[in-house]
Nucleic acid binder design. Structure first.
Length: 734
DNA sequence: GCATCGGATTTTTTT
DNA sequence: AATCCGATGC
């Protein structure tokens, strides 16, 4: 083991061999964070003789968990039996299944994924007679989710206005539905576990005593539920070792709070703090670029990132004329380097803010006859036929699952429409049962009462009820794939999906692929299979070995590294994203996201923008260069971007065209526009524009020597205007 | 009960 | 552009 410590620098050694007690490791990007975690585990086991089952290691993603597992196994030669290593959600699932006796659900609960959650919110909204225009299911769900992440149950939901009251009502009904379905959603997994540990001292002690050592990855991304969960688990031994970097906190929208890093030092007495500042990944130029960007954030502790990898190449900044050229620039640049033998396809990653941005890239790659691997978005598990069949499995495993039942009961169509389904649901509710339980008694044959009450509906339900009853028995005596095949046969599913004209091949192929996945769970059983389906992200399903460039969102890029990185879409509204313009905290998060992207690069970094893009709306829109490009010092970059004032192309074209046609005071006299030195416009100001009329300023900032004003015009929407070109008049302030 | 059509509405990031 | 929802007609 002493040998192993030799392979680490002194900061890493200090962390790995830190004495027991709370330890906070602040790890800059590329500083060997995973290395420290895995060596720490190996150190505890091999050098200190801690039995593996007394160690708990938590990550956020399955990928991170898998990487750690393999590395620990390599270090220890496989002597890790009993070690708990997994994502927060997987660990919680494990605890909750064991402790189901203390919960309102039983141990074979199912997990509702994002789609199920929305479906359920919609259903509740409908049943409550709430207008879904005023209460958008996605928004309502977001409110429920963030309440859960803050450990706020339906009863404690803070009510300040009528809207809150309605949402609290939906939350309550939503939660009741989950319990009735013997189901949890993602957030419940954390919430239930945290609450259980908080309220039940016996259970808390059981786990807190067991886990002598707790290690946490990506600590800056923990939310309140996760933080308290960890606090409870560490309440006996206090040996909690967390690794994080506040500059890489990018999950605020999911309730993550990087302030947990500060909280850690004050909540855990005598905690040690260790900084990892040496970067082993990137060239100095890339690090300097990253620092130049992140320095604009206010709430952060400065770190002194350094590397001995040398200066390296300058960062390439490229401005494409439009989004199509942006994509072909990326593909051309990669193709050229590959052709020259200077790089191989898998050296490259292309990162973007939103999944939608991958489309033009994919088209460009296909045009060039090059393969690529796309992370996320295309979603094997999101395919209809895959979801359908998982729903069948879920319903068989847990007949109380109302959402799965509603999904598959008429699949393929067998004459059970909404009316029949509602009759069934109403009857079930009357009886205090779930729809599935009613079906099972119907299928069992001794339910004269139900059959009478349901009348004609019962006839239609009968055959499905019998199938379901049969599958329940099959579950006991068949293997998983046999059951799967039985369901396919009974429902004549293949004929159903092959009925459609196009992509029929694909859809059946997906079914077979799912069957293949099921085969891997033959030994572990249905519970494990369903849990994996719910918790394993699509990111994990891609072949690692494919020799091709990787396309992924900036979020998905965290924790990865590539020799050459493209970040595209460096335009206002894209990065930073339009949704984060109003809130300084969110703007800082966008900057961190960019920082994460930059620091993925080992040797070469390309920052790409486009002067105009086709908006997901319709026609082309002129873009302003991202504010994040501004702090980059000239000596670090090669290539230029046009400044809004120097090139006409980057201000609001509609205004310009109008001005040119009809002339406006500002346009008539001026040859070179006067540069704004001082900000003239502030949020809430009322202004008048010659074309759009009166509006209210939302936001304004000085950049590139001029002032860019975002104004909201009634009936027109938000417009970004360049102050010196658009003759805005101030009407007054509120 | 089901299929089809038209209109409205959408847009971040993910365990 | 794509999806979702509701209304309409069969």
């Amino acid at each position: 083991m002493a040998d192993l410590l030799q392979e680490l620098n002194s900061q890493q050694q200090a962390a790995v061999a830190a004495p027991a007690g709370p330890v906070l490791v602040l790890a800059g990007p590329g500083s060997g964070k995973t290395r420290v975690l895995t060596y720490r585990i190996a150190y505890l086991i091999a050098a200190l003789g801690v039995p593996p089952y007394q160690i708990l290691a938590v990550t956020f993603t399955n990928k991170a968990a898998r990487v750690m597992e393999t590395r620990v196994n390599t270090l220890l030669g496989g002597k890790t039996d009993g070690l708990w290593l997994g994502t927060f959600h997987a660990i919680c699932g494990r605890i909750l299944r064991r402790e189901a006796a203390h919960l309102p659900i039983d141990h074979n609960f199912v997990i509702f994924d994002a789609d199920d959650q929305i479906t359920l919110v919609k259903r509740v909204i409908k049943e409550m007679g709430v207008n879904d225009k005023d209460y958008r299911p996605h928004q309502v769900h977001a409110r429920i989710s963030s309440a859960k992440n803050d450990l706020i149950g339906p009863e404690d939901y803070p009510i300040e206005n009528y809207r809150d009251e309605t949402i609290a009502g939906i939350y309550k009904a939503y939660q009741a539905y989950l319990v009735g379905s013997n189901a949890l959603d993602f957030d419940d997994m954390l919430l239930y576990t945290a609450k259980l540990l908080e309220t039940n001292p016996t259970v808390r002690e059981k786990y807190a005593r067991r886990f002598r050592h707790i290690l946490v990855d990506e600590f800056q991304d923990t939310n309140k539920a996760q933080y308290y969960l960890l606090t409870h688990l560490a309440s006996v031994h206090h040996n909690i070792f967390v690794v994080g970097d506040e500059d890489q906190s990018i999950y605020r929208w999911r309730g993550a709070d990087y302030q947990n890093i500060l909280r850690f030092s004050s909540d855990f007495d005598h905690s040690q703090k260790i900084l990892l500042e040496q970067n082993y990944r990137s060239t100095q130029t890339i690090l300097d670029t990253a620092v130049a960007v992140i320095d604009d954030n206010k709430n952060r502790t400065q770190k002194h990132l350094f590397t001995d990898r040398g200066t390296g190449e300058r960062v390439t900044v490229y401005e494409a004329k439009d989004d199509i050229e942006e994509a072909s620039y990326v593909v051309d640049t990669i193709a050229r380097q590959v052709m020259l033998g200077r790089a191989k396809e898998s050296d490259f990653a292309i990162m973007y803010r939103t999944n939608a941005q991958s489309r033009l890239l994919e088209e460009a790659f296909r045009r060039a006859n090059m393969s690529y691997r796309l992370i996320g978005a295309q979603r094997f598990y999101g395919r209809r036929e895959v979801k359908d069949l998982i729903s069948f499995m879920r319903l068989i495993y847990n007949p109380r699952d109302e959402i799965s039942l509603a999904r598959v009961i008429n699949l393929p169509p067998r004459g059970i429409g909404n009316v029949t389904l509602e009759k069934l649901q109403n009857y079930a509710r009357q009886k205090g049962q779930s729809s599935g339980e009613v079906l099972l008694s119907l299928g069992g044959g001794d339910a004269r009462q139900a059959a009478d009450a349901l009348g004609r509906a019962a006839d239609r339900l009968q055959s499905f009820a019998e199938m379901l009853t049969g599958w329940r028995l099959d579950l006991e005596r068949m293997s998983l794939t046999e059951l799967f095949d039985q369901v396919l046969r009974d429902t004549e599913y293949q004929a159903f999906i092959t009925d459609d004209r196009d992509e029929e091949q694909d859809r059946w192929a997906n079914v077979l692929e799912l069957r293949q996945v099921l085969l891997e769970y033959e030994d572990q059983g249905m519970a494990q299979f369903l849990e994996a389906m719910a918790l394993v992200a699509d990111q994990d399903t891609l072949p690692e070995t494919l020799e091709a460039p990787t396309l992924l969102t900036l979020h998905a890029a965290k924790g990865l590294e590539f020799p050459q990185v493209f970040i595209i879409g460096l335009d206002e509204q894209y990065l930073p994203h339009s949704r984060s313009m109003d809130d300084p905290e969110e703007m800082e998060e966008e900057r961190r996201l960019f920082y994460v992207g930059i620091t993925r690069a080992e040797n070469c970094l390309y920052l790409v923008r486009a002067q105009r893009r086709r908006s997901p709306y319709g026609s082309y829109e002129t873009m302003l260069p991202s504010r994040f490009l501004q702090p980059l010092p000239d000596e670090l970059i090669q290539g230029r971007i046009s400044r809004p004032i120097e090139r006409r192309s980057t201000f609001d074209m509609s205004v310009y065209q109008w001005d040119r046609q009809y002339g406006s005071p500002s346009q008539r006299k001026r040859s070179a526009p006067p540069k704004a030195r001082e900000q003239r416009f502030y949020p809430e100001m009322h202004v008048e524009h010659p074309v759009y009329g009166e509006g209210v300023v939302r936001n304004s900032r000085l950049e590139y020597g001029d002032e860019t004003v975002e104004v909201y015009f009634e009936g027109i929407g938000l417009k970004a205007l360049v102050a010196s070109l658009s003759s805005l008049e101030v009407l007054g302030e509120e």
